[in-house]
Write a protein that binds this DNA or RNA. Sequence first.
RNA 1: GGAGAGGUGGCUGAGUGGUCGAAAGCAGCGGUUUGCUAAACCGUCGUAGGGUCAAAAGCUCUACCGGGGGUUCAAAUCCCCCCCUCUCCGCCA
Length: 428
Amino acid sequence: MLDLNYLRDNLDEARELLARRGFNLDVDTFQTLDRERKQLLVETERLRQARNTASEEIAQLVREKADVTAKRNEVKAVGQKIKDLEDALRTAEARLFDFATVIPNLPDPAAPAGVTEEQNLEVRRVGEPRKFDFTPKAHWDIGPQLGILDMERGAKVTGARFYFLAGQGARLERALVSFMLDIQTRERGYTELATPYMVNRASMFSTGNLPKFEADLFWLKEPDYALIPTAEVPVTNLYRDEILDGARLPLKFTAFTPCFRSEAGSYGKDVRGIFRVHQFHKCELVKFCRPEESNNELEKLTSDAEEILKRLELPYRVVLHCAGDMGFGAAKGYDLEVWLPGQNTYREISSCSNFSDFQARRANIRYRPEPGAKPRLVHTLNGSGLAVGRAWIAIVENGQQADGTVVIPKALRPYLDGQDVIRPQTAI
RNA sequence: GGAGAGGUGGCUGAGUGGUCGAAAGCAGCGGUUUGCUAAACCGUCGUAGGGUCAAAAGCUCUACCGGGGGUUCAAAUCCCCCCCUCUCCGCCA
């Protein structure tokens, strides 16, 4: 959420910045709502003051054992007026709040203007896509042929966009999880968290998933909890409504969780294979830091995610989001796109974003810069390090050989008892 | 699921209708003193939003004692609903 005081004082600037990401800020509506709220506030406070003064007079009269009936009746009428005004004020405040909660974050000046994926800026390419002397297959062919992926049964047991991994396939995924967490915790200074997989509405609001993206989430019938679409939600909410000691910043966490997404509105997209599914696994990286450090921390976080791809010898490129392709709450963000030979293209495997104070304001996460100083909002960042299912796809597609087997990246072999190749296994 | 206790400022913890935004202590901040990685003493010390002001300071007003509603001239305090924590019983991976 944007700072309402900033909006009041810099409406034109805000409108222009938001236009860079394709959002049309309705300046007139904002000013009208803001003015109405202010008028009601002033009037309500004026009457409250009158009542408080009168109440004190009554208290004094009572102490003097004087008659207070007349005075009491006089104030009684004010009380009703206050009640009406308070109702009106509450409504006005709610309307302003609702207006503000659907405004996306202001883009960082570094984010290129643009509204579509094509306007993203390629920053660098790392690793050379392998030359095949045969036509490389996609994972939806390789996986079932090896007997490590079963999509039909996933669809039977649950529905479309669900799947089973089996034997070496399931183990490959488990190895990837340990591999990713070990690097981030042992070498990159992240603290590992195991988190709740369902959260309440307040948490979903804080990260920006509510109120706008309710349809993208899976909801429990009872109680009113949603399954997390990413560990970003529980980890960012770890410090909701807290004041952190500035000396502890930056704080860095990594968490492995399942992620649940309804994928509403993506019906035609990526219908083959397991690239886009309702349930997947991800190792997430989350940081809390001082505002002046956040863009630098974004570079470091991105490089922490890249490290996994480098060790797995997977070719990838880094793309800087244009203003319009960024997530709702992001000010600046990079995508890591891994090379998928089966599809002959780079595909997203990680998204790393700086949310500036957008989530911190919603979540009320502050820090005290110095002992005794006033609390300020932190900046929050997060990124995938990495999406495990997509890493699985990348390994299978990049490691495939003409005979249908898959070579496992060297760095991962210690997590598989030294196994170097996935060979066809008995069907489940 | 059943029974009970409780949620107060950064923390601990008083306060059961009116000079309570809230005692006291700790922590923090400012200072004094002491020849020592500290102690003692003094002072200060919540957040948000209005008004005044060119602005800041200051002054002043309003709200906030888990959340929401109610009673009352007046609510941290009384009533109702919800949430959370703790204890005991039951069930259970």
